[in-house]
């Protein structure tokens, strides 16, 4: 018997013994028994998951966790948040340390398949962009040939940058700096002409770190797709469904005009879609294995998607992001909930 196949068989058994214990509904049962959802979040990302000065988590990713907890357990505070670094996040999810990862994670094919993950619908469409000083006189990224570019190493940001410049036959000189605060300092001190990272990051850096935000412009080109959303591990389809439809419920609520403020009023709505969403017409909760008030509880806790967006990253927050492609499909964005019926 060739040595290789023995080794392969051994490896397969080794992998199986780790993967097999995940049974259907294991996660749902564990969450229900524990009375709390374990949610992996970023250790600190402004507007998405960051603590306030009393140590309470807030942010868009955090609100998604609270919505899921409210839908499953009826209590948006029944969440145990585990802050995770970029390196830790997938191990923590695979090993069962967290039930769901809501941590600005880009949905890609390899992650969806070979890492054994399932991506729930996107909660924020991001993409890599460029910021330049206004007095550089540049209005398009295609005019940036020969520029020095400040970039953080390690993530796909650096790779996208090189790809974009090569594809457009332009030269650039990277200034690679590890720490975000040092990148900021370098850019605003004029050490490089261009700053590149995710567009949401650029907007917040311009709003909060720039000496005078009006002196800097973000170029219209978005050079990469970074769809961010909650992630669960393979093995519990019911839990995946719950996470998926909780996100859809938040988006659907915005489309139907259901907010955390008019929620009780809407319970008396004659619109059949609203009735189904809020459980006035029963059936949806039962199909998910939850109480009929699942969507009602989630919306009561954190509001609809639009409210979550505006509260955490919208134009009236320090990040000051426009809805843009994160607007509803009815207003020209990409947020589209599958029909809840």
């Amino acid at each position: 018997m060739p040595m290789k196949s023995i080794l392969a068989a051994g490896a397969a058994v080794g992998v199986l013994s780790v993967v097999m214990p995940v049974q259907a509904q294991e996660t749902v049962n564990a969450v229900m028994e524990r009375g709390a959802l374990r949610c992996g979040v970023n250790t600190g990302l402004a507007g998405f998951s960051n603590p306030d000065s009393e140590g309470n988590w807030e942010g868009l990713d955090v609100d998604v966790c609270r919505a899921i907890a409210a839908a499953m357990l009826g209590d948006p505070d029944a969440v145990e948040f585990t802050p995770l670094t970029a390196q830790q996040r997938f191990t923590a999810l695979q090993s069962g340390e967290v039930d769901v990862l809501s941590r600005n994670t880009t949905w890609t094919l390899t992650r969806d398949t070979s890492l054994g993950l399932n991506f729930a619908p996107v909660t924020f469409y991001d993409g890599q962009g460029f910021m330049v000083p206004a007095d550089l006189g540049v209005t398009s990224a295609l005019e940036l040939s020969g520029a020095t570019v400040c970039v953080q190493p390690g993530t796909t940001t650096e790779l996208n940058l090189a790809d974009y410049f090569r594809a457009n036959e332009m030269e650039f000189e990277p200034v690679v700096i590890e720490q975000i605060d040092e990148v900021n300092a370098a850019f605003f001190a004029g050490r490089c002409d261009v700053y590149t990272t995710d567009a949401s990051g650029l907007a917040s850096i311009r709003a909060t770190v720039a000496p005078n935000p009006a002196d800097y412009i973000i170029l219209p080109e978005i050079i990469s797709k970074e769809p961010l959303g909650p992630v669960v591990r393979h093995g519990d389809d019911q839990f995946f469904d719950i996470v998926k439809w909780t996100v859809y419920a938040l988006i659907e609520a915005e489309e139907l005009g259901v907010t955390s403020e008019n929620l009780e009023e809407m319970m008396g709505s004659s619109n059949p879609s609203v009735q189904r969403l809020l459980g006035v017409t029963p059936g949806m909760g039962e199909a998910l294995g939850l109480s009929e008030s699942w969507a009602h509880d989630a919306i009561a806790a954190v509001g609809n998607y639009g409210e979550i967006f505006e509260r955490n990253v919208g134009v009236n927050t320090p990040l000051g992001l426009e809805r843009g492609i994160n607007d509803l499909w009815t207003r020209g964005g990409l947020m589209y909930a599958m029909p809840i019926r």
Partner: peptide
């Protein structure tokens, strides 16, 4: 230990700086 997301003094100070209103006071 802050690299494995345990927040000691340094980690907590860094995390405080991620609050959108208070960024940049390094």
């Amino acid at each position: 230990v802050s690299i494995i997301s345990l927040l000691d003094l340094v980690g907590a100070a860094k995390q405080a700086l991620t609050n959108p209103s208070w960024r940049g006071f390094y």
